[in-house]
């Protein structure tokens, strides 16, 4: 009897122990434009590792202010590459941990099918009252949109028709609700598995604007958290990259 009992114990104990050490939690601050893929990624990550990723979505600028003031996040998935760099130089993030997890793609979009042609000539024709962008001073997609307009020589002409959303999400709302006929938004907002899901769109060629590099960084608070390290590892894995690409982001 004792042998069976000790054998049973011997086989169960490591399992219980490994379970206890494995099922960790990681608090992730996620740029709003990445919310849909990140929810799918968190599920994939939980299945692969047993760890749980707890997600908060918001603007990178707000996260910067919160993290600088002690917000309990382990990882930041930023909408840009400069905020992670600033956090590292501030001492709030771990040097050497920054890497690009996705490259954003810009799209000129209308909720109406057939309104936007696949060359963006609708901008030249100017048959619209409002063109929504996200705030160029705070949102990288907004800055990229201005750059595209400048490249087309339309920045001056369309200046009075620009309406700015606080984030790319709001720019989308302006267009989706029909208040703005057109808008520059993130491809990921209207794209799944190789297709535009609604309305009409011009996928802006990537060379028309500076790269929308979105970087992840390990925050000081998360440097000893195994779940945080595992998530960063997972973001670089092939299944994760395939998933990210499905949502219309570029991956290396």
């Amino acid at each position: 009897m004792p042998t069976i009992f000790s054998r049973l114990l011997g086989s169960l104990l490591p399992l219980a122990l490994s379970g206890a050490t494995l099922a960790g939690e990681v608090q992730v601050a996620v740029a709003a434009n990445f919310s849909a893929p990140m929810q799918a990624l968190a599920e994939q990550f939980a299945q692969a590792s047993g760890h749980q990723a707890l997600l908060s979505f918001g603007s990178t600028g707000k996260f910067y202010a919160q993290i600088s003031n002690g917000a309990p996040f382990d990882i930041l998935l930023s909408a840009d590459s400069s905020t992670p760099a600033t956090l590292i130089s501030d001492g709030s993030a771990v040097p050497g941990s920054q890497f690009t997890y996705a490259s954003g793609r810009l799209v000129l979009w209308s909720a109406q099918p057939g309104r936007v042609d696949d060359q963006g000539a609708v901008l030249e024709r100017g048959e619209f009252a409002h063109l929504a962008i996200s705030n160029p001073a705070t949102a990288p997609y907004g800055a990229a949109a201005l750059e595209v307009l400048r490249g087309l020589g339309l920045e001056r002409r369309l200046k009075d028709r620009l309406v700015q959303g606080d984030s790319i999400t709001q720019a989308y709302q302006f267009v989706a609700s029909g208040n703005a006929e057109l808008g520059f938004i993130a491809l990921s907002q209207v794209y799944l598995d190789g297709r535009i899901t609604q309305g009409s769109a011009w996928q802006v060629p990537a060379e028309r604007h500076a790269a929308l590099q979105q970087d992840a960084v390990l925050l000081t608070r998360g440097q000893a958290n195994p779940a945080a390290l595992a998530l960063l590892e997972h973001l670089r894995s092939a299944p994760a990259k395939a998933l990210i690409a499905r949502y219309g982001y570029g991956v290396d």
């Binding site: 603007s59 600028g61 707000k62 910067y64 202010a65 600033t86 409002h130 929504a132 705030n135 001073a137 705070t138 620009l162 309406v163 700015q164 959303g165 606080d166 302006f174 703005a180």
Partner: peptide, 22 residues
């Protein structure tokens, strides 16, 4: 509002933008 200068960009939004832009 759409954050349009002199039409809809009020002080509270301007402060928010400054904060967001760090």
């Amino acid at each position: 509002g759409g954050n349009i200068p002199d039409k809809t960009r009020v002080v509270s939004v301007q402060i928010y933008d400054h904060v967001e832009a760090m």
